[in-house]
Amino acid sequence: MEVRVQAGPFDIGAEISRFTEGRTDMGAIVTFSGLVRDSAAGDLRHMEIEHYPAMTAPAIEKIAAEAVSRWSLGDAMVIHRHGRLAPGEQIMMVATAAPHRADAFAAAEFLMDYLKSRAPFWKKEVTAEGAAWVAAKDEDEAALTRW
């Protein structure tokens, strides 16, 4: 299990290769990556992601450990960036490895649902109009109840 919280970019292809290397016991790898999406008006200058350094990695590790134990995963990985990110840049990725795909898919969705609402990150969007904090969505909180 690996959790990384970093300002710099990552190479998703290299990360997946490293994650799967030598895993002859895992038949399924699921990966998800989240990108900075431009505003509807197309005027997003950048996104600023703030986090709580002392809490971020431990909170994600707890979520990942829960995923590994619930779905008998072979491994799980989470990389999440913070700081200033331009539209189209990768914000984060998760990867799960399991013998069969159902576990890998379910665990990846679980990780994403919990990262959205329980990992201490806050997004701010900076456009030509000014800066605004992204509000948490009710449906993101509601998504946790399905687990």
Binding site: L115, K116, P120, W122, K123, W133, A136, E141
Partner: peptide, 10 residues
């Protein structure tokens, strides 16, 4: 003790 709005990770 830390105070903050609901988190928006992912």
């Amino acid at each position: 003790v830390a105070f903050f709005p609901p988190m928006t990770g992912g």
